[in-house]
Design a binder for these strands. Structure first.
Lengths: 236, 236
DNA sequence: TCTGTCGTTATTGTGTACAAAAAGGGCAGG
DNA sequence: CCTGCCCTTTTTGTACACAATAACGACAGA
């Protein structure tokens, strides 16, 4: 059986990443305990874990608040993420994909291409593309054969990134994208290049393109948020 | 005032990283509570934090044990660290050092050079060199101006890395090095190159040299540990 | 009216009792 | 003699009570 502390941790993490709490919101132990029908003990354990994970801020005797991440922080995180995913791409290229992986990899790339190139481009297609995109990056991560790297990358994707004035929380996994189709096309071109490089065992090329691919996303987000438009996020 | 939970966390972290517990050792809550003259509550909080940090393994209803990191894990961590410190070096070069930073930076490099080039090379000099080495890498980290990057690098340096058969725990900060002087010379040459590149604002060069610099340390450790010699660690 | 201090109140930190689950040992059966 | 089951024991998980600390507000003095 799973302990209540674990269940609460998962629930709270989902809630925070899902944007159910405003950035800066205080998380009172009693309130949470009442709301979740457990005692304060598992709540405290969960809060301490989420603090260590970087989702909450904490001050002794003052309690926990949902972490407020600035635009600069988001850029910093994207910079690190670009480098790490670049490393993953290089390793994947150097190690090479097994037969089954390769098949699936090519299938994912092909379906993304069909979507982007197709006539229909509605919410349904965008959502599907988002899923495939996550799968694409995930496969490269896995193919790199470095668990520590994988978990480091995961960390860069699960931090709640939020605007300064805008109160919306959003985070990379959700892949809600609100910009024009050309951006998808450009992103997909990168994917094709990266895929080609990996399959051709060209490590440096894969690394370079991947890094630029992610950094572009960071710049896009920065620009969109800086001019105060609605939150826009790529998971490119 | 600092809470007991925080104090216990710090103490326990030090103890684990310092190698006071065998890898795989069970950490009983009651035993720790008795030993530290506090109740189980702060102990539990500390253990949960250290688990989240990756220093401990945990199984519900079974308790915590000191994490056993394999040689492969260590290599993986070093690979990530090499990439991240490379990134830091590049950013530092691109941003440039402020006047005060630059002065201190050059002073550190010069003292390291004096030590390595000097006649005396005993434990005292090695220890001092280790300190300066940490300072050198730390300054680059800080100069990169990316807090997320800095904390990510820190994480790669505080993981307990231990041999499979050998029971010794050792970790990067301690910088205990047991190999010949030539390795220091080589390391210092790298430092000079990196320093030169950063001061000359040559980002790519700084990144490349730094990455190789750290990866060499990883390879050295791998080789030393793989052939079963005494643990040897560079903090290069 | 502003400001500083004091007391109240709410919230967190710690200790401890009890419940629940797993580990270990003893016993019976094969 | 070995194996499997059951009971005991130990250890962890949870709840709750109390202590300690910080936030808030009222009041008095300037």
């Amino acid at each position: 059986m799973v302990t209540r502390a674990e269940a609460v941790t998962r629930q709270l993490r989902e809630a925070i990443l899902g944007g159910q709490y405003e950035p800066g919101a205080r998380l009172s132990e009693m309130a949470l305990a009442d709301g979740m029908s457990v005692s304060r003990t598992p709540i405290r354990a969960a809060l301490s874990v989420l603090f260590t994970e970087g989702l909450l801020d904490y001050e002794p005797n003052c309690g926990y608040v949902v972490r407020r991440i600035t635009l600069d922080d988001a850029i910093h995180i994207y910079t690190v993420r670009a480098t790490l995913e670049g490393l993953a791409a290089r390793l994947a290229a150097e190690i090479g994909l097994a037969e089954a992986e390769r098949t699936r990899f090519e299938a994912v790339l092909a379906e993304m291409e069909r979507l982007v190139a197709g006539k229909a481009w509605k919410a349904e297609q965008m959502e599907r593309w988002g899923e495939l995109n996550i799968a694409f990056h995930g496969m490269i991560c896995a193919a790199a054969g470095n668990g520590y790297l994988a978990s480091s990358i995961l960390r860069t994707r699960t931090l709640p990134v939020l605007t300064e004035r805008g109160l919306k929380t959003f985070f990379a996994e959700r892949a809600v994208v609100w910009w024009d189709r050309a951006a998808y096309r450009r992103s997909q071109d990168d994917h094709l290049d990266i895929g080609e490089a990996i399959l051709a065992r060209q490590g440096t090329r894969a690394e370079t393109v991947m890094r630029e691919h992610i950094e572009r996303a960071g710049r896009l987000i920065h620009r969109k948020l800086a001019i105060g438009s609605e939150a826009a996020l790529a998971l490119p």
